[in-house]
Design a protein around this nucleic acid. Structure first.
Length: 278
DNA sequence: AAGAATGTTACATG
DNA sequence: ACATGTAACATTCT
């Protein structure tokens, strides 16, 4: 669930919480399986007594540069959260790693489905360099998008979900962007007209910015639903036009929204606004 | 109440 | 290049 707006909301929350400059004084690991390519002892050793120097986001990764020069990378996958508690707060069932800070708080990695992963690495770029462009960066122009789409035979939706093509989009924002741009998810990526590319470019950026402004999308109240570190649930669900609105009316034309499956992912479209052709 | 579905991604196989 | 299937896992939905 956490896509670019959700991950950015979390990073903003962590900065807001004053994490930068804090020193990690303890590390408790309840489920070592979430640590990627490092054993729990080396991990704890590698983070303790280090200061948080920088927090950032790239795609759906949270980055945390430590004073040692190494960086933590966190990918929340489907159901991961970063939660903040006083160190004395009892541990919940799904809290797998806890980093204690010098002000008595603990940042805990919570993930009921256990798909999320944490790396500790000298070279975060080794993981991040494969990612496509940042959709909200200045460099990501309609022209760049057009160049990346050119010649691709793949359907546009699975391509937009491919993190090496464009970083940060997931199922929710792809469906929303395609609706906004009036594109059918199965249209061949390379067949978009320049007008369609421009519309898609604008739509991607607009739905992401709106998601961010709304503090992310939380779909329900279950344990796996998105919740940021400070702000909690996001309000962007109310701004969704098609995602999980099967059977309801398209806000643009009034047609009934349909659900289909594209590349094994549930997909929501307005059959009126989003025609297969061009 | 059993079985299916769930917002992600990596990998394996045609 | 691309599509498809699978696996990781627990909870929620049907």
């Amino acid at each position: 669930m956490p896509e670019l707006p959700e991950v950015q909301t979390i990073v903003d929350d962590l900065v807001q919480a004053g994490l930068i400059g804090r020193i990690i004084v303890s590390c408790t690991i309840f489920w070592p399986g979430c640590l990627a390519g490092i054993d729990q002892y080396a991990f704890a050793d590698g983070v303790c007594a280090r200061r948080v120097a920088r927090l950032w986001r790239r795609g759906k990764y949270i980055g945390c540069r430590l004073s040692s020069g190494r960086s933590l990378l966190v990918h929340l996958r489907m159901t991961g959260r970063m939660v903040m508690h006083d160190w004395a707060a009892p541990y919940g069932k799904h809290e797998h790693v806890a980093l204690g800070f010098d002000d008595g708080r603990e940042l805990r990695f919570y993930d009921p489905r256990k798909f999320g992963r944490i790396w500790l690495t000298d070279n975060p770029d080794a993981l991040l360099h494969r990612l496509g462009p940042e959709p909200l960066s200045r460099n990501f122009t309609a022209q760049v998008l057009a160049e990346r789409l050119a010649g691709r035979q793949r359907a546009i939706k699975p391509l937009l979900l491919d993190q090496t093509f464009l970083a940060g989009l997931g199922n929710i924002y792809v469906d929303e962007a395609l609706w906004q741009a009036r594109l059918h998810p199965l249209q061949a990526a390379g067949s978009l007209s320049m007008d369609q590319v421009r519309a898609l470019h604008r739509a991607v950026r607009q739905v992401l910015r709106r998601g961010l402004a709304n503090g992310g999308t939380s779909l329900g109240r279950g344990q796996g639903n998105f919740s940021a570190t400070i702000r909690g649930t996001g309000q962007n669900r109310h701004a969704l036009k098609v995602f999980r609105r099967t059977g309801q009316d398209c806000p643009r034309c009034g047609a009934v929204i349909r659900r289909l499956v594209v590349g094994q992912r549930s997909t929501h479209i307005c059959p009126q606004c989003q025609q297969a052709g061009a």
